[in-house]
Amino acid sequence: MIALWDTTATEVVTALASERQSAGGTSGLALNLVVIVDEKGEREAEAALTLAAQQHPCRLLIVVRRDNHHTDPRLDAEIVVGGRLGPCEAVVMRMYGPLADHAESVVMPLLAPDVPVVTCWFVPPPHCAAEDPLGAFADRRISYSARSQDPVATLAVRASDYNPGDTDLCWTRITYWRSLIASAFDTATADAASVTITADAADPSASLLAGWLGGRLGIRPTIADTEVVRNSEHLPAIKAVSINLTNGDDITVTRDEAGHTQLRRTGFPDRSQILNGRTLGELLAEELRHLDPDQPYAAALSYCTDDAVSSSVKEVS
């Protein structure tokens, strides 16, 4: 590990090259991962990134914005290659003063060549991720609407400024729900007549699930607001999804506080499984598995906010 205090971008680039050489050099980097965190969430972010890096060897560039009211710009950097942050090349950059608003001037020289760039915000996302200086050069931009002051309202902002490559960890949170519900329709013989989602109405994941179901089934789901258990990220967890079919059959998925989930379908045996809430690191690791535009997310975001996200999104894969 190398620690540099009150340093410059040039010195950080030189020190990173030196640390890579001392560690015997690394190869096989899958991507550059640029992560924006605040001082309060730094420890939680590092734990999540360590888990994600175990599955996706990367050059990890962590931007910690600290005292923005500091009159003089200052950069403190910590360089770790194959250390506490997992099998990656990591640079933790703590930025003070005006430098915190121009972090791209330090980040861009540190990007590994010839591999994709993913930018992730563990803080409230910017107004337009694709136009943010740290998102403009990224192939994929991952925000987390749940970190916003008004998460559901943030979805409308995400819809208005959507660009291919944008996605949201609140969408990733419902992957298992979408898989389970989709599997139930393998045996369905009629269209859906109504859909009810039992969840906290302030949960952005519930809104995105409603958008996905609405777009796929052609009807507008109802969110039945209720107090629900909190998942491992201390966020509301969806409690149930009920679908009534036009032939009178029902499809219901329920989840209790212990994570036990039951799928009930008219005329079929019940199916049970554990659907635990996933950690921030597990959600991020899933998102890093694919770098193509997330069309299902775009369509769900469009439907749940009544916004035309992109005229190019004609169908949900």
Score class of each variant (00 low, 15 high):
172 T>A: 10
198 T>V: 15
191 D>F: 09
183 S>D: 15
184 A>F: 06
113 P>I: 11
125 P>E: 05
177 W>V: 00
196 T>E: 15
222 T>A: 13
177 W>E: 00
173 R>H: 06
157 V>E: 12
231 N>E: 10
170 C>Y: 03
140 R>V: 10
234 H>F: 12
173 R>S: 12
127 H>G: 12
127 H>V: 14
178 R>V: 00
205 S>P: 08
106 V>I: 09
156 A>N: 13
157 V>T: 12
196 T>P: 15
129 A>H: 12
219 I>W: 01
178 R>T: 00
133 P>H: 01
124 P>S: 12
221 P>S: 08
136 A>Y: 03
170 C>K: 06
151 P>C: 04
156 A>M: 10
125 P>C: 00
144 Y>E: 04
231 N>M: 04
112 A>H: 11
139 D>L: 13
197 I>Y: 06
233 E>A: 12
118 V>P: 01
216 R>N: 04
158 R>K: 14
192 A>N: 08
231 N>K: 09
110 L>I: 11
206 A>E: 01
115 V>P: 05
215 G>C: 02
228 V>S: 13
168 D>S: 08
200 D>I: 02
143 S>C: 09
186 D>W: 07
227 E>H: 08
222 T>Y: 13
167 T>N: 03
118 V>L: 02
126 P>H: 04
118 V>C: 01
168 D>K: 04
187 T>S: 12
173 R>G: 05
211 G>R: 06
135 G>Q: 06
140 R>M: 07
210 A>N: 07
164 P>Q: 01
196 T>A: 15
231 N>F: 08
174 I>N: 02
108 M>T: 15
110 L>E: 06
226 T>I: 13
178 R>K: 12
185 F>C: 07
150 D>G: 11
151 P>V: 03
222 T>E: 13
153 A>M: 14
162 Y>P: 07
149 Q>V: 11
110 L>H: 08
125 P>L: 06
225 D>E: 09
231 N>Q: 12
159 A>V: 08
205 S>K: 07
127 H>L: 11
114 D>I: 07
181 I>V: 13
147 R>I: 09
123 V>C: 11
159 A>Q: 01
182 A>C: 04
198 T>R: 15
165 G>T: 06
235 L>T: 14
134 L>F: 03
206 A>L: 04
225 D>H: 15
136 A>C: 06
133 P>I: 02
163 N>P: 10
201 A>T: 11
119 T>N: 10
145 S>T: 07
135 G>C: 05
149 Q>R: 14
180 L>Y: 03
207 S>V: 09
197 I>D: 04
197 I>N: 05
214 G>C: 01
117 V>I: 10
167 T>K: 04
163 N>T: 14
167 T>Y: 02
194 S>W: 06
135 G>P: 11
161 D>K: 15
227 E>V: 01
151 P>G: 08
106 V>K: 03
203 D>S: 14
227 E>R: 00
231 N>V: 10
198 T>H: 15
138 A>S: 13
143 S>G: 13
153 A>Q: 14
233 E>P: 07
232 S>V: 07
232 S>M: 00
134 L>R: 04
106 V>M: 05
228 V>H: 13
186 D>C: 06
112 A>L: 05
186 D>G: 11
228 V>D: 14
106 V>N: 03
112 A>D: 05
216 R>D: 00
194 S>C: 08
126 P>F: 03
202 A>Y: 02
110 L>Y: 05
119 T>I: 09
155 L>P: 00
130 A>N: 10
